[in-house]
């Protein structure tokens, strides 16, 4: 029981991180129908900027937090303005390759800026782990989980309750019709990019204290986040959270009850099974046809 609980905690910690990253994917997909393969790089930028601003420049925690999110959002906006919008005949696969190019570019820039070594940062609050029935949980894990829930709730009300949120969704459903109704669709896409990049930065900020951050951390995390988003159903915020937690817990249980070396294989196998049973993901509305 104690073991099981520890696996669960471990899974929830990882899973919440996957969930934040998946939210970034979902956010962008919902408003533009695009998968951004540079999402993991936003996470990396978030983590490294946070370490620099907080540990390096010793800014206060909230200030460093906000500055990091703002900075990474600007990177997202630049990416949209310079790269995505310039494509004349956007075929989804072309946009994917552009984001892959962008991810390599960002990784290269980060390597020049932060060097090739890993960096670590102190925890947000006191660092003594809680003990629940013999299993331990870091306060940082609770931070992560809490922030994920706050974000997803905020996102929920944003898309359902605000005019901007509704406008964004309208753009995704039919860009031309939305434009005819007077919605500035280009601004909406820009906003979506900024928000999803900011969300990636939040992911990075949350990971920085529990793990090690380096310029090449983005790819693995982006991949896991992508899986989580697919698992939960692309375009569904709650699905992203569910998918992330599920993936994290599956991985941890895979370690516990099978083999740690096979954990990636196990997680992906289950993922394929789920996709086979429910091709649109757990909370996905319908199979989406692209390409």
């Amino acid at each position: 029981m104690q073991e099981f609980l520890q696996y669960l905690f471990s899974g929830v910690t990882n899973g919440a991180i996957y969930a934040v990253i998946a939210l970034g994917f979902t956010m962008l997909y919902k408003s533009t129908g695009l998968i951004n393969f540079a999402q993991g790089e936003f996470v990396m930028l978030g983590a490294l900027s946070m370490i620099t601003l907080w540990s390096g420049f010793e800014l206060s925690l909230p200030l460093a937090f906000l500055l990091t999110i703002a900075g990474v959002s600007v990177v997202g906006i630049i990416l949209e303005r310079l790269a995505i919008r310039s494509v004349r005949k956007p075929h989804p696969i072309v946009l994917i390759i552009i984001t892959i190019g962008a991810s390599i570019l960002l990784r290269g820039v980060a390597m020049l800026g932060w060097g090739k070594d890993a960096h670590s940062s102190p925890a947000f609050s006191r660092n003594e782990p809680f003990e629940v029935a013999g299993a331990t949980l870091l306060p940082q894990s609770l931070w992560i989980l809490g922030i994920v829930l706050v974000i997803v709730t905020a996102l929920h009300f944003f898309t359902r309750g605000t005019l901007t949120g509704k406008a964004m969704q309208a753009c995704a459903i039919n860009k031309r019709a939305a434009w005819l109704l007077g919605i500035p669709s280009e601004t909406m896409v820009l906003l979506a990019f900024a928000m999803s990049a900011g969300m990636g930065a939040v992911g990075g900020i949350l990971i920085a204290p529990i793990s090690m951050s380096s310029y090449d951390m983005g790819m693995t995390l982006g991949l896991k986040g992508f899986c989580a988003a697919m698992l939960g159903g692309l375009g569904s915020s709650w699905g992203a959270v569910l998918g992330g937690l599920l993936l994290g817990i599956l991985e941890a249980l895979g370690v516990g009850f099978f083999s740690s070396s096979l954990k990636d294989g196990i997680a992906f196998l289950l993922l394929l099974l789920i996709l086979y049973v429910r091709p649109a993901g757990i909370l996905g509305a319908r199979a989406v046809h692209r390409f």
Binding site: E3, Q6, Y7, F9, S10, G11, T13, N14, I17, A135, T136, I207, I210, S211, D216, M217, T220, L221, E251, A252, V255, G256, S259, S260, S261, K263, D264
Partner: peptide
């Protein structure tokens, strides 16, 4: 004997085992 991925962010599951 357990293993971990080079980029893993948390190894508590392996250590529990």
């Amino acid at each position: 004997a357990e293993g971990f991925g080079a980029k893993d962010t948390d190894m508590t599951a392996q250590l529990t085992k």
